[in-house]
Amino acid sequence: MSAPILTVSGLRRHFVQTKGFPRPVTTTVRAVDGVDFSIRPGEAFGLVGESGCGKSTAARALLRLIEPDDGEIRFAGQDVRAASGRDLVALRRRMQIIFQDPYSSLNPRRTIGRTLMEPLEVHGVARGEAARARSIALLEEVGLPPAAMGRYPHEFSGGQRQRIGIARALALEPELIVADEPVSALDVSVQAQVLLLLKDLQRRRGLAFLFVSHDLGVISWFCSRVAVMYLGRIVEQGPVAQVFATPRHPYTAMLRDASPIPDPSRRGILPRVIGEIPSAAAPPPGCHFHPRCPKATEICRTTYPEWNDAGGHGAACHHPEGG
C-alpha cells in the first residue's frame, strides 16, 4: 500500500451569516465540520451523502476554491493551506476539478480551442501550434473530433460539454481529479458514457479521484473506497463493497435501502425514511443522526460518538452493526 497522495484531516468550513434589523441574528452553518480522509495515488475515493451534507463544500475546500477555516490538507506531502502565490499555482496544476453543471462550466464566449489552450499557455506548458496539437489530442482522448476546436459551447450537448470539461481538467496532467457530481446533470445513457470515459482515463493515466455524488450506484461502480457524509461529518468510511454490503452506521444502511434496485423480482417495500435532514445551522445535540435513527438511545442524544475504526472500515456510531 503506497503513501496517500492526499490527506485531509480536521477539515472545517463554517459559513457565518448575519441578517436582520434592528436585531441582527448570526447563524453559523457548519457545512464541513471536521472531515478526515485520505486518497492513495490512482485510487477512486467516493464521498456520498444527501443534498446539503457538505460534500461539495469539502471538495472545493481542499482545492481552496472555498477557503477552509481549519484543518490540514496535504497533497503529496505539501501543505495545501499554507501554499500561496507560485506554490499554490503549481499545486493547482496537480489537482483539477470537474463540475456538475456542464452548462455553466464553460465560458460561453470562448471557443473550445481557446478554453483548452489557455491553461497550457498560462502555465507555459505549450504555446501556439504545440498548444493546439495538445488540445486536439485532449479532445480525441475524451472522444471529440478536432473540429470541435473552433466551436462555441452552445453548439454542444450536455454530455459533450462534460467531456470538454474533462479535457480541460486533464490539460495540465493532474494527479488528482475532484469530480463534483460529474454525471448527475446528465441523461442516464450519457451518464454511462461519461462514467466509462472517466474510468478509462483513471486506468490509463493512473489518476486519483475524489468522486462526489449522491448516487450510491455510481459510487459503488466507480470507487474502491467510500466515505459517507452526514451534516458536515463523515459517519462511515471503508471499502465500497463492505460499506454498502454490511454497513456499520444506521445512516448508511438507510441510504442503501432507499436506493432502488432495478429488479422487479426483488421489489419490496421501501423502508420509511424518518424525518428530514436537519439544518446544518442547528445540528441536533449528540449524534447528529439520532432524531432519524431507529437504534438511538439515551447516549446518542447527548454525546457525539467516537470514531471506531475496525480494520479500515470505520464508523462514528454508539451502536454500530456487527460490533
Partner: peptide
C-alpha cells in the same frame, strides 16, 4: 458564481485574468 470562473481559478489563473 458560474462554474467556468471557478474552473479558471482551479486552473491557476490570476484574478485579473
Amino acid at each position: 458564481e458560474r462554474a467556468f470562473v471557478e474552473a479558471g481559478r482551479a486552473l491557476g489563473f490570476s484574478h485579473a485574468r
